[in-house]
């Protein structure tokens, strides 16, 4: 029961952060709120047994990405000019998409139900075979690095692409300036 209330409180915090993020006209505080959002999500991940994900979310989502935002904010205006001409359209889109998802949720398995399809098919295979196939106790590592290792290769390529992209976009700008001087 205690767990239920703690989770409830954390989720409530997330909702508050998200709504404040809409309202705030200080871009810098929005950025910090995004970091807080990631960090609280990481805590929820721990309570949902996803320790590896919590670790990554705290390090990469709350840490690295906030660092990137702060580094960028150094060169960007700190305040937002509020124009509300898109609000109605955005509200309609979100309501439609949200209703579709709520409608879909009626046929979703209950959270934590051990009889849900995902705990019956594929998932159990990893739990029973990782030890014999890989000899390591961490199932997430086993799946990440071996069963679905190809996804991880793709993930690495994504990082390389983004890194190269940032280099091309920003490194390029500096080169321009050098040529002009």
């Amino acid at each position: 029961m205690a767990e239920f209330f703690i989770n409830g409180f954390l989720v409530f915090l997330l909702a508050v952060i998200a709504i404040v993020a809409i309202q705030s006209i200080k871009v810098f505080s929005t950025v910090m709120l995004a970091g807080a959002y990631s960090l609280i999500s990481a805590i929820i991940f721990v309570s949902l047994d996803a320790v590896d994900v919590a670790f990554t979310e705290a390090a990469v989502g709350a840490g690295l990405s906030t660092v990137l935002y702060i580094a960028a904010m150094k060169h960007l205006p700190k305040r937002e000019k509020v124009v509300n001409d898109n609000t109605f359209f955005a509200l309609v889109v979100c309501l439609v998409v949200g209703c579709l998802l709520v409608w879909a949720s009626f046929d979703l398995p209950q959270i934590g139900d051990p009889m849900a399809p995902i705990h019956q098919h594929v998932g159990p295979y990893y739990i029973t075979n990782t030890k014999t196939d890989m000899g390591i106790p961490n199932l997430v590592t086993g799946v990440l690095a071996s069963y679905r290792g190809y996804d991880t290769l793709g993930e690495t390529v994504v990082i390389f692409t983004a890194g190269l992209g940032v280099l091309l976009l920003l490194g390029d700008g500096r080169n321009n300036r050098d040529e002009n001087e």
């Binding site: 996803a50 590896d52 994900v53 990554t56 979310e57 990469v60 989502g61 690295l64 990405s65 990137l68 935002y69 995902i118 594929v122 998932g123 990893y126 739990i127 199932l139 997430v140 086993g142 799946v143 990440l144 679905r148 996804d151 991880t152 793709g154 993930e155 994504v158 990082i159 692409t161 983004a162 890194g163 992209g165 940032v166 976009l169």
Partner: peptide, 20 residues
Amino acid sequence: PLPHVLILTAIVVGVATTAL
């Protein structure tokens, strides 16, 4: 473990998008 693995990949992809 499978959703955890997928999300580990997705978190990194998300940060890559943010950086770009």
